[in-house]
């Protein structure tokens, strides 16, 4: 792609994003979609409003904490399940189905159960964990299974044992897949945490969303939703960068 084409692509993309922002502002300002669609500037003003700073800060801390814990636990569990399937192949089919069914269980059904068995505070973390497990498990098992048979043979001929082979071949080969799984898991952890909060966590972005919905606080509702969306975008963006680096390094 030439320099001019690249500039053109960037210009068009920036124009597209600008168009979204301007239409949001215009629609909200003139209430074209009714009173429940606020202007972007009002939403942003609510976010930076000093009076609300404490509220948003506590909510963000809670949600980020749950999402992070869920991300770490979920990644460990998902990775362990995938490794188990590779080390004991007879378990593989059952693990695949278990992951698929766990993914298909409506999270709203788990919420009340988790609140009873864990706690109100633990539910967002637990749901974030579940959301992460599936993504990491699917990506890791796909990655561990792609191993190039030719490389496999080369290492075997060189006298590598199965651990050595896992370390030198299967794991590095799976890293790009794992990075891709983590990239999808990061926003999933944020959604999981927010959903989990709906069931009655003491604080969090999800709580702000639900309470402002019930109290008809439109600007607050949109601010919290925008913060949640930004959180998941940032998580996705950060892991996209990581993925790009891993793919460049290991492929």
């Amino acid at each position: 792609m030439s320099m001019r084409d690249r500039l053109r692509t960037m210009g068009l993309g920036a124009f597209g994003l600008l168009l979204v922002i301007v239409s949001w502002e215009v629609i909200g300002r003139n209430q074209l979609l009714g009173r429940t669609f606020p202007a972007l500037s009002d939403v942003l003003a609510t976010i930076v409003d000093p009076a609300r700073r404490g509220l948003f800060q506590r909510a963000l801390e809670a949600t980020i904490g749950s999402a992070l814990r869920g991300f770490v636990f979920g990644s460990i569990i998902g990775f362990a399940m995938a490794a188990l399937g590779v080390i004991f192949p007879p378990l593989r089919a059952g693990l695949d189905r278990l992951a698929a069914v766990m993914h298909a269980v409506p999270l709203i059904a788990l919420g009340p159960f988790l609140i009873v068995t864990l706690s109100r505070e633990g539910t967002p973390t637990a749901i974030a964990t579940l959301a992460v497990v599936f993504n990491v498990f699917v990506a890791t098992s796909a990655g561990l299974r792609v191993g190039n048979p030719l490389h496999h043979d080369v290492l075997t001929v060189l006298g590598a044992g199965s651990w050595e082979r896992f370390r030198r071949l299967e794991l590095p080969g799976a890293l790009p897949f794992i990075a891709d799984g983590l990239k999808l898991a990061a926003p999933a952890a944020v959604i999981g945490a927010i959903l989990g909060e709906w069931f009655g966590a003491p604080r969090g972005i999800g709580i702000v969303i639900v309470s402002s919905l019930q109290n008809y606080q439109i600007d607050l509702l949109w601010s919290a939703a925008l913060l949640g969306a930004m959180l998941s975008l940032v998580a996705f963006g950060a892991f996209s960068v990581l993925e790009r680096w891993v793919v460049g390094r290991f492929r």
């Binding site: 068009l12 993309g13 920036a14 597209g16 927010i194 939703a225 949640g228 969306a229 998941s232 975008l233």
Partner: peptide, 18 residues
């Protein structure tokens, strides 16, 4: 060129949370 970048952004927005 105009539609794709916003679509990419919106695609990563947690719809269920919205």
């Amino acid at each position: 060129g105009i539609v794709t970048p916003p679509a990419m952004v919106f695609r990563s927005v947690p719809v269920v949370a919205m």
